[in-house]
């Protein structure tokens, strides 16, 4: 069976206003299979978001190809739903339910009563049906992320792209949502590409983890973590150790604890 996503020898270059070119990622190749939970991890600035944007269709590679469902990515589309780290990804002028209903209607997935039914199903799936009639500003950060996941899943994308979706959450909510995401994946079987800074998150959630090195961003290793069942067993400990060593062996030689990077990111986002 051919993979859903094929990233083949991709280079992505940003050109700034002065015309200077900056190669963010180079020579990156990997593929993602249907129904897989694929995690991308790496130090800050290594190009994780950039890669995800290329799959989503927001940036075009300057070399190489990105195929989704065997078709080159040209522009963003509802077959690749994205969940972002920021809490402002819901439409503030629509209730939680309307956010999902609108996404269904505008993508032609469902209309009218059917759309409302379906939206409620997905709100139930992520556990916020009680907040259906609230406006986004009335929700906690964790609830906003749940709503965003519901909206992304409701339009039945081929792939769910997630860019540090739990990065701005407190540790307790974060752990809770990691478990929930695993459950949601079991119930829907959706293909997930998840970008994270957290070694624990990668080891726990991922089937495979792509470890990136920086300057420019390249593939350092792809680690299998699909045997990790929970966060307590030896498999989890072994996987996190492995990932930590890979990330610690960076050119700068500075092993950066994942938790610390995460905290820095949260500070920046505020």
């Amino acid at each position: 069976m051919t993979p859903v996503v094929i990233v083949d020898n991709v280079q992505i270059t940003y050109v700034d206003a002065g015309g200077r070119r900056f190669v963010a990622v180079d020579g990156v190749s990997f593929d993602v299979r249907e129904g897989e939970k694929f995690v991308i991890i790496g130090p800050s600035g290594c190009g994780k978001t950039t890669l995800l944007r290329a799959i989503a269709g927001f940036v075009a590679p300057s070399r190489g190809t990105v195929l989704v469902g065997n078709v080159p990515v040209r522009e963003p589309g509802p077959d690749r739903a994205v969940v972002f780290q920021d809490f402002d990804q819901l439409f503030p002028w629509r209730t939680v339910l309307d956010n999902v209903v609108y996404a269904l209607a505008v993508t032609g997935r469902a209309r009218g009563r059917a759309a409302v039914e379906r939206a409620r199903d997905f709100l139930r799936l992520v556990g916020i049906e009680a907040a259906a009639d609230k406006y986004p500003h009335q929700l906690s950060g964790g609830m906003k992320q749940r709503a965003a996941i519901a909206r992304a899943l409701a339009i039945e994308p081929k792939i769910l792209l997630m860019d540090e979706p739990f990065g701005a959450l407190d540790a307790i909510t974060r752990t809770q949502l990691q478990h929930e995401l695993n459950r949601i994946w079991r119930e829907t079987g959706v293909t997930i590409i998840l970008v994270t800074h957290s070694i624990q998150e990668a080891a726990y959630l991922g089937h495979r983890v792509l470890v990136m090195s920086t300057n420019p961003g390249r593939v350092q290793a792809i680690v299998r973590t699909d045997h990790v069942e929970d966060m307590d067993g030896e498999a989890f400990a072994e996987a996190t150790r492995r990932l930590r060593h890979l990330l610690g062996g960076e050119a700068e030689g500075q092993p950066v604890p994942a938790a610390e990077i995460t905290r820095k990111e949260v500070g920046e986002a505020q």
């Binding site: 927001f58 690749r80 972002f84 402002d88 993508t107």
Partner: peptide, 11 residues
């Protein structure tokens, strides 16, 4: 972010 969401929805 909101603009990217909109483009993802094909708007």
């Amino acid at each position: 972010t909101l603009q990217m969401v909109a483009r993802t929805l094909g708007l």
